[in-house]
């Protein structure tokens, strides 16, 4: 198992990054740090996909110099999934940032727990 870990170091790094991002999104109090965590988490997944989709000595599936053999290119689907994922991740980050701006304008703080305590005090 240990040997596999070393030869698949790309996937291992992706998993570690996923953990870091997940932990940040879950545990940080600061909203901006949470969003950074979200982005690390998503990027780790794309790294994993890209790493899995790559086959050594092959190139991206764009036909150049008339080479049409399937052996020359990698599978395009993982790359397509990464692109789709990036679009989703961008829109979600934008939405989170806009919520953060709204909260900051109202409460002049980025700390989610402090916002909660203030809301309880307001008793809305």
């Amino acid at each position: 198992m240990g040997a596999n870990l070393f030869s698949n170091y790309g996937e291992a790094v992706a998993m570690i990054l996923f953990g870091i991002g997940f932990g940040n999104l879950l545990l940080q109090n600061n909203l901006i740090k949470k969003i950074i965590g979200l982005n690390i988490m998503d990027t780790a997944i794309y790294l994993f996909l890209a790493e899995k989709g790559y086959i050594e000595n092959r190139v991206a599936p764009i036909v150049t110099n008339g080479v049409q053999s399937m052996e020359a290119y990698i599978n395009p689907i993982p790359s397509g999934l990464v692109l789709t994922g990036i679009v989703v991740s961008v829109s979600v980050s934008a939405l989170m940032l806009s919520i953060t701006i709204r909260l900051y304008q109202r409460y002049q703080t980025l700390d989610l727990d402090e916002i909660s305590t203030r809301l309880k005090k307001e008793g809305l």
Binding site: L38, M96, T100
Partner: peptide, 15 residues
């Protein structure tokens, strides 16, 4: 304020 905070929490859990 309440709904925006709720939306932020909802988004974080969902993400």
């Amino acid at each position: 304020g309440r709904t925006i905070e709720a939306a932020a929490r909802y988004m974080i859990m969902s993400l």
